[in-house]
Design a protein around this nucleic acid. Sequence first.
DNA 1: AAACTCCCCTGATCGC
DNA 2: TGCGATCAGGGGAGTT
Length: 265
Amino acid sequence: MVVRTLRPRLVGERIRGVETSGLPLRAPINRKALERACVGARVDAVRRIGKYWLVDLSSHYVLLGHLGMTGRLVFADEDAPRAPHTHAIFQLRKGLELRYVDPRRFGVLRSYTAEEAPTSPELSVLGVDPLERDFTVDYLAAALQKSKRDLKAFLMDQSRVAGLGNIYVCEALWRAELSPKRRSDRAVKRAAALHDAIVGVLRDGIENRGTSFSDYVDAEGVAGGNQHALAVYGREKAACRRCGAALRRIVQAGRSTFFCARCQK
DNA sequence: AAACTCCCCTGATCGC
DNA sequence: TGCGATCAGGGGAGTT
């Protein structure tokens, strides 16, 4: 979603300068490295791999970012007041800036050369992205077969399927009518249903401009609407839209899971 | 390999 | 109203 709103406004822009807050994200931001990669470079493309966004630059460098839980990228006039927790600013054509805002600082922002990026610690460990061609039923079935973990943990693991977070995992399992507690290697026969559910929830999320909480807005300043389309996430004790049973909340691997114990088996 | 726990950090909300 | 506890969309490190 972020990439989708970023791309039309960012591709073709030349980056004139970079500014940083000095506070670390998950790791410190290396301003010098960012400047080397960005300053004077033109944006050739904006891409996404799993939860990472990538900006391909004419300098032959790549900007790599992750929004963590609270990160946002916003376009702003250079004279507009900076939101609290603005940790990086990319100066574009006169008067225009792209700002990275992240209160909790769980994000990532760094640069690689085009050659280094695919083998970086961030990207090299990622599994297949569900919206890419190589995310097939066969790939998913084979990955499920290899794992004894429960489906919730399996889908949260970015090294198997890259790009699903807590919300979309809960939603996909509900759609596929699969229990989050079921062992992955005992869900192989349901791989096709799970595959379609995963692709479906991601497509719908993008269609609805992302899942917004509180005051989240995308790069265009527009709030997403996907939170209204959620079937289970955040709906503990509410009625399942399929069977009417009360939805439950449990904790798996330290994270909340929302599901219907009656129709997810 | 997988399952724990704890950690990073800020802000909203809830119970008292 | 104030205050501490709890929880939140993510992921990594260290330990069993």
